[in-house]
Nucleic acid binder design. Structure first.
Lengths: 224, 224
DNA sequence: GATAGCTTAAAACATTTGTTTGAATTGTCA
DNA sequence: TGACAATTCAAACAAATGTTTTAAGCTATC
């Protein structure tokens, strides 16, 4: 693939080569995927030599792993921390809407700053359907711990909620949030007026209200 | 009297080369992605010559497009038809659960048969985060029409539902369904007992009940 | 049996891929 | 300064990429 030269945005001379490579690779991998990005494009965009990739990281794959190592745990911790914050602030019995809003904000926050963590968000989406990470580090380091945290928080916020259903509710919430992330690119290019405008904050508010209502129905209403 | 037509016996020996290539490419693209699948692997798995790809389809990309052309419209129509069926059977005023259950089944059905359309489902997931289709054919041919259909069906099923909110509700439903699709591979390999078992039918039932409850709260309850 | 038209086959095409090499350059400390 | 390590560089590596070419095989019609 010729791959248009795109932007000549050499990531600048900001910082040492190793960091420039990490930042540049994060952007290119998120835009064109792992196989869709060549080491030469990468080095060119980062303004360094081709050999630097192997010099600093050993291989293209190791560089890819390093990107995740840099962001995965902090991002997971941020999500769990946002849950914990609501829990402590409410003395262990948070209002359902507060819990959901807080988690949704932590989840979607990286999308707000256009440049920094938004790329990694996209990259995570790719990794979910096209894994290049060894073993199941993504599930173990990110998905399962986050799921656990939101699950027990939900049980605290809604004592009437059945435990076996709490995990399903967590799926629903995360599914909605992820979908909000995924559909954004579709709106950005296809401005056909055929489709409503994309307002992230409106979507988030909806997800919170929608989920809260559904959970209440589970907790209060029928148990079967 | 005709000559015996013995041929190679690699894999999909059934049918002419063109169809074998389409089936094989569907599987390989869904498993390893577009860039992750070489024309040689493809031809080898289909039991034909390398040149056949370009002979029948012109290029690797055209073959990719043909796969979608084969499935996209029928799958979309199946989804919309499942909605229409509920609408007519209920004389235009369906029970909310029936509408949701019917749509969810049509949405998830391809996952049931392990081999046939399940691969294409996976492929659609890839296409959403890593587009190789020209322009926005996926949005125009699949996403938007399906969204429109479920949206107006929701309004019919719930007259109290605000129109501007109907599209958000549709996002929530599709987001949950897609997530149910995406998380399955995570469960299949990581059987750590750390995570609950994956039961698709249980998840579907939950999504239906969860969404119905939330929609009712929207339609009946608060308007603000 | 000869002819024409698809279809298949093997090989070569020209790039591009990730990686390695070894020399040049830079920086650091004695 | 001189010596030594760390870094950068251009070049070359072997392998793999999508595509094209050229010749052979096949099947039908005359």
């Amino acid at each position: 693939m010729p791959v248009s030269q795109e932007k000549n945005t050499v990531e600048g001379d900001a910082g040492p080569v190793r960091e420039r490579l990490l930042d540049t690779a994060e952007r290119l991998f998120s835009e064109h995927g792992f196989e869709g990005t060549s080491v030469r494009e990468l080095a060119s965009a980062a303004g360094c030599n081709i050999a630097s990739v192997n010099y600093y990281f050993g291989s293209k794959e190791k560089l890819y792993e390093e990107i995740f190592r840099r962001h995965l745990i902090p991002m997971r911790n941020a999500r769990i921390a946002s849950i914990d914050r609501v829990m402590t602030e409410s003395s262990g019995r948070p209002k359902l809407e507060d819990l959901l809003q807080s988690f949704a904000n932590a989840f979607i926050e990286p999308l707000a700053d256009e440049t920094k963590a938004a790329r990694f968000m996209k990259l995570m989406g790719r990794e979910m359907v096209d894994s290049h990470l060894p073993s199941d580090v993504f599930a173990k380091e990110m998905a399962i711990p986050t799921l656990k945290a939101i699950q027990i928080a939900l049980l605290k916020a809604c004592p009437g909620l059945d435990e076996s259903r709490a995990v399903l509710v967590a799926y629903s919430i995360i599914g909605q949030l992820l979908h909000a992330v995924h559909i954004r690119p579709m709106f950005e290019q296809a401005c056909d007026a055929e489709v409503p405008k994309y307002e992230l904050s409106r979507i988030i508010d909806h997800i919170v209200a929608f989920s809260a209502a559904a959970i209440r129905a589970y907790a209060e209403g029928r148990n079967e």
